[in-house]
Design a protein around this nucleic acid. Structure first.
Lengths: 147, 147
DNA sequence: GACGACTTTTTGACAGAGTCCAAGTTGAGC
DNA sequence: GCTCAACTTGGACTCTGTCAAAAAGTCGTC
């Protein structure tokens, strides 16, 4: 489906800014609002930060993009929606990697006890260290021994 | 274990401020840095905001308290560490409620594919609406019908 | 096509959370 | 008691994100 129709079908007006934001989100796996401002500017010349925030909020609301917010990081946006995948986040470099749900298709939406809440999303973040950061820590430790 | 020894064992100096911060975190399930400043002031008379932030960062680093950061809310701190419980968060009022791990004891630490990451924590947030906010929305909807 | 209601975008100010800095004071632990 | 760590004060600053009002653009209808 063309981006144009995608927006129409979700009941939002089609504008150059929105198309650019949508393409910016698609262009890389996990980007910040700031990334999107830059990417969209590259594409259409100029766009205000406010428009990007407004557009992202609209998209999130309409289910066109998904927002994730790891502790200590600005919000990230991705266009992979509806498949309930999760994220691996590196504590050192902040890198985010997609990972499929370990329990299967969507069961993690069920909490053990919902306390009367009406749950619509389960966000799972695995925290740790990515291969590169593991390696560089080892190197640093080794070089410390040379003091 | 007394708070005093708890700090000692984690290799941090024992000070009135740190004890007050620790107690403030324990005093309620999920508190903001601002809550802690106030609670600690009530206890020891005066403490600087800077100290509270420093202390909280130290505690998080040492594993004495856990920090969670829901979208659109300041960071929250809790002293329930090491049991891998999760959180229910209300999209409307921001209320946070503890919930035990749905899969059992710590198995959600295992991602389907760790991509070479060394994972040390799985953070799960269930997003939805709390009973109170569900009710108040219904009331608002009902009153709109009366226009 | 042109009109007009309504939605978006722009611009710039603003707010909240938290960090950084620096210098001086206090206090913990050996 | 000495030394180093921790605390205070206060302000400047950064980073994300929102608010408000005016200008511009979209889209259904004529």
């Amino acid at each position: 489906m063309a981006a144009h129709e995608l927006l129409r079908d979700h009941g939002v007006h089609v504008t150059a800014q929105r198309l650019a934001v949508l393409r910016a989100v698609s262009s890389r796996p996990h980007c910040t609002a700031e990334n999107i401002v830059e990417t969209a500017k590259d594409e259409i010349g100029t766009i205000s930060r406010q428009s990007v925030y407004d557009t992202l909020n609209t998209f999130v609301e309409k289910g066109l993009v998904r927002r994730i917010q790891p502790t200590g990081s600005p919000a990230l946006y991705e266009d992979r929606v509806g498949d309930n995948h999760h994220h691996l986040i590196c504590r050192d470099c902040g890198r985010v990697v997609d990972v499929d749900c370990s329990v299967g298709a969507m069961p993690c939406l069920q909490a053990a006890n919902d306390n009367g809440f009406e749950i619509d999303e389960a966000e799972v973040a695995y925290w740790g260290r990515c291969p590169e950061c593991k390696t560089s820590t080892l190197e640093k430790t080794a070089s410390n021994h040379n003091h």
